[in-house]
């Protein structure tokens, strides 16, 4: 009876907890399996995925968490955009192609760059050692060694968990359990120290937004000036054609 009451109490306590909005970023080299992982989590087929050269996101509910995962392109020519998402992320999911031994050094460099950022240091990192279904894939221990993971996460005070997995194994309820386990771990760590983490993220994002807003205004002003200059130029040169310019658009059929 007593335990039943205790159960009820803890349930009530959990029920009273506010919904927490958490943003995670999923990064890693191109072809590591980020989009496949995200699609698996979402319950979609993780096969036949085109390379992401940009940004997509998924939303999911996990207990009292509303989780948003940003899936960011990993190719060499797009990787530089990652830094724009650091401020708002509560944690990092780093996906590694464990079977691509030739690119381990590049993976390591990419990871160093992420953890080196002051906006990321101290935040929890989940490493998914993906493609374990492939022959010759490095084991958990070997991935740790080739990335010097231990040293790296200690240096930057990031709590870290590594999960060997296979993103293409299934989706939705049939998703590789290691991916789920990893995600639980990450959310658990975030929950443990939520208030401090949340405060840091609010501060960093406010700062970044103010900066972006400022840039946006400056840019709008520059573009306005360019347009104005060009407008006055064309009005002199193309005076005889001006009537034409104004007529032509009216010929466009308007959809209703």
């Amino acid at each position: 009876m007593f335990s039943l009451m205790a159960n009820c109490c803890s349930w009530l306590k959990r029920w009273q907890e506010p919904v927490r909005k958490v943003t995670l970023i999923m990064v890693g080299l191109d072809n590591a399996g980020k989009t496949a992982t995200v699609r698996g989590i979402q319950g979609e087929s993780p096969e036949d995925v085109a390379p992401t050269v940009g940004f997509s996101k998924i939303d999911l509910k996990q207990g009292r968490f509303e989780v948003t995962i940003f899936d960011l392109g990993g190719g060499k020519r797009i990787r530089n955009i990652w830094r724009n998402y650091y401020a708002e992320s509560y944690g990092v999911i780093f996906v590694v192609d464990s079977s691509d031994i030739a690119r381990m050094e590049e993976t390591k460099q990419a990871m160093i760059e992420v953890l080196n950022s002051p906006k990321i240091s101290g935040k929890p990192v989940l490493v998914l050692a993906n493609k374990q279904d492939r022959e010759g894939a490095l084991s958990e221990a070997d991935v740790i060694e080739s990335l010097s993971l231990e040293k790296l996460v200690n240096e930057h005070k990031c709590l870290c968990q590594i999960e060997p997995c296979s993103a293409i194994m299934g989706c939705g309820k049939k998703i590789d359990k290691s991916i789920k386990k990893g995600l639980y771990w990450l959310l658990h760590i975030i929950a443990k120290d939520f208030d401090a983490l949340n405060e840091r993220i609010q501060r960093d994002t406010t700062e970044q937004k103010a900066y972006e807003e400022q840039k946006k205004l400056e840019r709008a002003e520059r573009v306005r000036r360019i347009r104005e200059e060009r407008g006055s130029r064309t009005s002199d040169l193309l005076l005889p054609f001006k009537a034409l310019y104004h007529q032509q658009p009216t010929m466009l059929p308007i959809r209703d």
Partner: peptide, 24 residues
């Protein structure tokens, strides 16, 4: 220009409400 320069040049990195993708 490479994709990341295009993304930042066009301010794509501030988009959060939709999917975007660069196709060379």
């Amino acid at each position: 220009a490479p994709a990341s320069e295009i993304a930042e040049g066009l301010n794509l990195h501030t988009i959060r409400d939709r999917v975007w993708q660069i196709q060379s």
